[in-house]
């Protein structure tokens, strides 16, 4: 069963109380996921200031805006899709992710059709 781990990091302008994670920790985690044979896909997202929002209104007009720069305390920083037997296994992998200490991980099953 496939699960997406949505890695929400504290925004870069967040107070300094946020836990720091190192590149080495992320690389080690990435290697563990790949070595375990559960890796489906995963990306780390570029900084939020590079984001652009697109919406098409009722008239078919494209509305393009810079952002979003939501006031949300946490922003999506990356994701993994893993293939594991059940939710407990997915939660376990999420808990081991460095992002779980620096922010939160939302675990969502990938819909099956």
């Amino acid at each position: 069963m496939k699960y997406m781990l949505l890695i929400h990091a504290a925004a870069t302008d967040a107070p300094e109380s946020a836990v720091e994670t190192t590149v080495e920790e992320w690389m080690a985690y990435d290697k563990t996921v790949k070595d375990a044979g559960i890796y489906v896909s995963g990306e780390s997202l570029a900084d939020l200031v590079t984001a652009t929002t697109v919406r098409v209104d009722a008239a078919g007009e494209r509305i393009i805006t810079d952002g979003p720069f939501a006031e949300a305390r946490e922003v999506l920083g990356g994701f993994y899709v893993i293939d594991v037997p059940d939710l407990d296994a997915a939660l376990d992998w999420a808990a081991r992710c460095p992002g779980a200490r620096a922010g939160t991980i939302v675990v969502r099953p990938v819909a099956q059709f």
Binding site: M1, P85, D86, L87, D88, P109
Partner: peptide, 10 residues
């Protein structure tokens, strides 16, 4: 069912 919460003893 859909998130597949397992039936297991931890």
């Amino acid at each position: 069912r859909e998130a597949r919460i397992p039936f297991r003893v931890p």
